[in-house]
Design a binder for these strands. Structure first.
Lengths: 338, 338
DNA sequence: TTAATCCTCCAAAACGTTTCGGATATGATT
DNA sequence: AATCATATCCGAAACGTTTTGGAGGATTAA
């Protein structure tokens, strides 16, 4: 609890000198600097960051605003892995990290600007918000530097980082086409997610390139939920028995799809090939293990932080980053024998 | 960026009055209070928490110090789920949460006290540190309120929350005994974890109660790692072929054990029964799905936060909390037919 | 010798709040 | 009329830093 004043008194110098000594300014004699450092250590002095930030108007703090930091997130670990990336990068660059989690209830109490202003974060990373979230509009208007994860929007103060979802989806579906599948269904997420739109486009593009006519009724909405995906898959497979392969917009939904198929007595992958998206932990452990498109969530967080700090430090440069996916072949896909 | 001064000026009152009006003091006329509130909203004023904390010497902030916020943590999600619990409870009680992650490199630069003092957290929750961690000693000496997760140590300013590991382990092993198993091996974690010691005791106690002599060579160390557990299990099963059941101190290690057993051609659960500990997501998806002892990691975080804030607000009461486990029967255990 | 330069150091202001100890006015009580 | 209580407001200090603009002395240059 020693303050700079205590150090100054004990060292017989002014507060100014202590401050400048400890902060490495050149206008202080090396001998006194050493003495001051000594005394500071002796008194276990460490500067009060509140006071410092107050006067410097810099907090060296970034916020990670996540909508829905919930236990269900354990299944895909998206938030956790993004958090790891953000944390690592922030740590490397000397930024503090405060975690801000909202839900619709909290959002009614405080506007985005209030939230951010109060916490005194210099910039913020947004994860998990939907495209129809009221905060999104505020973000774009506000001049607080912000990086969006998986929402491709830009302005003077906002950038984004995302995965090449379209390309990833395309390679998933191309893989199925190459295995000889003609009737390929898609279990998509929900329409309030950009990634869903993009993955749908990738799906359609792949079909088109191989000259397969796409059928609207082959695409259903699984809301990124395992259960919803299961019921939707069951319905789809019943109504469209000619389908021999499925592309799921998330691994979690693929888990639901697998369960639905198994319940209907379909052998996997002989009767039905399934490709997921994400490469979550589960996908390697399920039976059959899941062929999928891996996206690097850790890197998503890491790059977001890099972009944000670049903005904060005035480094002009691209405010967006699109990461590549990698295709992972496992057991859930095989040649079409029908 | 409006300050309290701006509001005061516009309202034609003093700074003091604005402060007292907004903070609900009674010595301000209701009419002026309303006017001030109006103007505050108009100017989008929100108080600078830095300044406030500086003068009040209260930050309403707690820290979650985790050692090893790493991507590998995705597999068991321990940290994530604890975080969710901490976050929810902190949110409910109006505390901010800052995430502090350390590793041995960082620990050399800053002592625990420095870390905590600088960040101006009022209290802190420690997760994931080992019993031989140098920070632990500091924590006990320091008078900053602290709750340890899974380390049963207490002092004036520190408490803990943990799971009843001994009882959990005991019920796991008792389950195996009841299935007729006589030779039960254990894949434990590492000795720098209290939970390992406790789970070992539970294992031994269960055996003793049923009058089964415990055999030291039946217990090996899997370091809480999947791979290590796999190799250790392979060795154990080879050297002690009479073993028909395994109790693993974590589900993740059980995954390794399952793999080892499968590679040796053992049928599960017919040839070998396995019980895990934790109830991680994977345990429900593996083949066979894993019988396990569930611990509520979310609740661990939630209760830790409750204990901490109780301490911060001067509510005297117990500084410790031990949560119960629940037994979950799945496919990986069956009767002993040997 | 004088002027200029450099090296060390410092006093005071500033950051945006809260709070303590009054101040003023009004009305009630004696 | 004097005293007291109450309601409403405010000035100034305090929190612990950094930074600005200079002061004083020693050294160097002219």
């Amino acid at each position: 609890m020693a303050t700079i004043r205590d150090v100054a008194k004990k060292a017989g110098v002014s507060v100014t000198t202590v401050s400048r000594a400890l902060n490495g300014y050149s206008d202080v004699n090396e001998k006194t600097r050493e003495r001051i450092k000594e005394i500071a250590k002796e008194l276990k002095y460490s500067p009060n960051l509140l006071a410092r930030s107050l006067v410097m108007k810099k907090t060296k703090t970034i916020g990670l605003l996540v909508s829905g930091l919930r236990i269900e997130g354990s299944k895909d670990n998206f938030t956790y892995e993004v958090l790891c990336g953000v944390n690592d990068c922030a740590g490397e660059l000397g930024y503090e990290l405060v975690l801000i989690s909202t839900d619709s209830k909290k959002q009614q109490e405080k506007t985005y600007n209030q939230l951010v202003q109060e916490r005194k974060v210099e910039g913020i990373i947004l994860q998990g918000i939907k495209t129809d979230d009221p905060y999104l509009e505020e973000v774009l208007k506000s001049d607080i530097p912000c990086i969006l994860i998986d929402i491709p929007m830009e302005s003077d103060s906002v950038g984004y980082v995302t995965t090449d979802n379209r390309d990833g989806a395309k390679s998933a579906v191309t893989h199925l086409l190459n295995l000889g599948h003609k009737h390929i269904g898609m279990i998509n997420g929900h329409s309030q997610a950009f990634v869903s739109q993009e993955r749908l486009e990738g799906y359609q593009e792949a079909l088109q390139e191989k000259g397969v006519v796409s059928n609207e009724s082959y695409v259903v909405d699984g809301a990124f939920l395992e259960e919803k995906a299961e019921t939707e898959t069951a319905k789809l497979l019943q109504e469209r028995p000619e389908i021999t392969a499925l592309f799921c917009a998330s691994d979690l939904m693929a888990m639901g799809a697998i369960r639905a198929a198994k319940k209907m007595g379909r052998k996997l992958p002989e009767d039905l090939s399934i490709v997921g998206f994400d490469n979550i932990i589960l996908s390697a452990y399920s039976t059959p293990s899941l062929t999928t498109i891996a996206q690097d969530r850790y890197q998503l967080g890491f790059e977001a932080t890099k972009l944000l700090t670049d903005m904060l430090e005035g480094n002009k440069g691209s405010k967006r980053k699109v990461l590549n996916t990698t295709f992972i072949k496992r057991e859930s896909t095989s040649e079409n024998h029908n």
